[in-house]
Amino acid sequence: MKNDFALPQRIGTKQMARISFLAVIGFVLEMINFPLPIFPGFLKFDFSSLPSLIGGMLMGPLPAVFIELIKNLLKVIVQSETIGIGEVSNFICGISLAVPAAVIYRKMKGYKGFIIGGITGVIMLTVVASLSNYFFVIPAYAFAFGGMEAIIGLASKVNGNIHDLKTIIMLAIIPFNIIKGSATVLAGAVIYRHLPIFEKEK
């Protein structure tokens, strides 16, 4: 039985080049980020998970993990403004989107499989981002950058209904990741339609 989580037995230069290239593209996209006015400023929108989503579809779930890992290691080395906390969060969220999508796509080839996999990935991203932010990411930010009250205060400036960690999750983390994940999948769907390597599977 084929193991979808295993890398090919022989990883050629072309395969390694793809993983590295997609990781660098992801790194560049991560650097091109911007806040959305309706969310706290510490939530930055970018398309940095798009390369791992595409890479996962092409090569499998584990290469998608490697793409996310290399991308975030590059970010830590070159420019980390969060002492690594943001990069850990980005890695967790990136693989939670790309890995489920890739698993489903490997079982259900074609555009339909891409869409179903993408929707599943967005759901998983939203769940995992909510849990990781509640139990690790936001508490880590609070410990490193002035306490939980400072984080809550920053968030409440944008949305007055935010008054504690739970409301940050409900009113900021969940909707932000639904929007970001959905935008990434939609962008991936457009690329899918035009990427020659997918043509035989349409």
Results as ranks from 00 to 15, higher is better:
170 M>R: 04
149 E>C: 12
56 G>Y: 10
6 A>V: 15
62 L>D: 08
35 P>D: 10
111 Y>D: 10
153 G>L: 12
164 D>G: 11
165 L>M: 02
44 K>W: 13
153 G>F: 11
73 L>F: 01
116 I>Q: 05
171 L>H: 10
135 F>Y: 15
19 I>Y: 13
196 P>A: 12
189 A>M: 06
26 G>T: 12
141 Y>G: 04
151 I>G: 03
75 K>M: 06
113 G>R: 04
148 M>R: 10
125 L>V: 06
79 Q>W: 08
122 V>M: 02
200 K>V: 13
23 A>M: 09
32 I>C: 01
135 F>M: 15
187 A>S: 05
36 L>C: 08
184 T>G: 03
169 I>M: 06
58 L>N: 01
182 S>H: 09
137 V>N: 04
71 K>Y: 03
80 S>E: 07
8 P>Y: 07
61 P>F: 13
17 A>Q: 09
180 K>N: 09
97 L>Y: 09
148 M>E: 13
116 I>N: 06
90 N>Q: 07
5 F>N: 08
41 G>D: 06
23 A>R: 08
126 T>S: 05
157 K>R: 05
4 D>H: 08
174 I>V: 12
41 G>K: 04
199 E>Q: 12
47 F>I: 05
151 I>M: 11
195 L>N: 12
3 N>C: 07
30 E>A: 15
33 N>Q: 04
